[in-house]
């Protein structure tokens, strides 16, 4: 299938309502730009993201999925990081079974004011994904 060269990768971000979503809001407030093909769905806590949702995103054509995790700031408890890591591991296994590059799933802890870090991470992720889309 001939595809035209894409300017930016399609990325689904899972953010968390109290921690990383405010950081993504603040990135907008500070006019820190990132590709407009980055879409956010926010959930209460990153450790509640189901692997099947992530797999669904790849099936529907997303190039990458980014989990903007709570990290140790999580209001639901410190086990959040470990549990989010665990669900990422589980998803990686599922991705391998479907021959999807595990690097197309990325997780980073984004604190409530980590706007710059978010934009940096997303830009890096976008560049990586673009290389795999437009070889």
């Amino acid at each position: 299938m001939a595809e035209k060269i894409r300017k930016s990768a399609k990325i689904l971000v899972f953010s968390t309502e109290k921690i990383s979503d405010p950081a993504i809001d603040m990135a907008g407030l500070l006019k820190l730009h990132y590709p407009p093909t980055v879409y956010t769905i926010s959930v209460p806590c990153s450790s509640g993201i189901k692997p099947r949702w992530i797999m669904h995103a790849y099936e529907k054509g997303f190039d990458g999925v980014f989990i903007a995790a709570d990290g140790t700031d999580c209001i639901f408890g410190e086990s959040c990081t470990e549990k989010t890591g665990h669900l990422v591991g589980k998803t990686h296994t599922m991705m391998k079974q479907k021959s999807i590059d595990p690097a197309r799933l990325k997780m980073a802890a984004i604190c409530s004011v980590c706007s710059e870090s978010f934009v940096k991470q997303i830009k890096g992720f976008n560049e990586y994904l673009l290389k795999t889309i437009n070889p």
């Binding site: 209460p44 450790s47 509640g48 189901k50 949702w53 529907k60 997303f62 549990k83 665990h86």
Partner: peptide
């Protein structure tokens, strides 16, 4: 918080307002 969701081997748990249907239909639209 939903921490129980991803660990269920039979996908028997859902968070109200964040069900599979809701999230996946949003992903479809995006």
């Amino acid at each position: 918080c939903g921490m129980c969701l991803p660990v269920c081997p039979t996908d028997a748990l859902n968070l109200i307002a964040y069900s599979n249907k809701e999230i996946e239909s949003m992903i479809d639209a995006l």
